[in-house]
Amino acid sequence: MTTAVEESTTTTSNTPLRRLYPGSHVEDTFQWPTLALDDIESSFSVQEYLQQLLREDYTDIQRLIDLPEGIDAEIWQYEHLRQLCSQLNYLIPSLDSECTVDSCPEMKADGWLYLCAAHPVTKSCPAIDYIVHTLDGATMLLNNSKYFPSRISIPEPSLKHLQAIARRLYRIFAHAYFHHREAFEFFENETCLHSRFVRLSKKYSLIPKSLLIIPRSTDGDEPSSNSPTSESPAILSRRSSTSTVQEIPDDTDTSTIGAEDAGDEDQGSEPADRVDDE
């Protein structure tokens, strides 16, 4: 059958179409011809281009991060974050067997405790809840046509959301790294997602370096020195109430229909204790 596919694609049409054909073997899916960015005609050209780069070599991080000519840097970050969320969907299944309410009742990483802002009032969620809520919230925010109406340029006021999203998604890696190392490394081997994300964040200053707490041998400049600390509820509540690091104004989402809690787009979480201002 494979041969039939190849024959037909080479003979019947000059350029094989970039689509999935039901019935195809999994190794034949997404075996699409490489196109130059300018030749990708669709409204999703940047996403397609990024996914094409990933298919070609997901380990060549520099090539993935480098801003292609003709693309807005903001859009490039935006599409990277969408791709990040998309791929993080595949990390959760490997976490949810071991990251439970019992094993991780709080979202911690290396002495930090993160509060979940997917709720009307930020609160401490169990790690797995935090991860799911954060990913859900980031996905919905990235899909919100009010903040991100176009795949070609990003309104100035929405840029801060990219940073907030990156900051929060990073905590998922941090928790996995410090509490579920095996799953983290397995996933990282398969995707290089963390390395890519960190490189992206550094290049575009999405996350302050001081908050990058996962020590890196290859991409990180230097392993951050993490002084282990203890979490005290008092500090937590103070932090969450002051919200000094919140960049997203609460009044931005007044009219989201169907969003039972408007806070879903405002999920700023608070690192407790050793708070480096973001």
């Binding site: 299944p93 996905t139 046509s145 989201t256 229909i257 169907g258």
Partner: peptide, 13 residues
């Protein structure tokens, strides 16, 4: 207008 899904299932790889 925007509407949130009531749930997202993750499990497929």
């Amino acid at each position: 207008e925007e509407m949130d899904p009531i749930i997202t299932y993750r499990g497929h790889t």
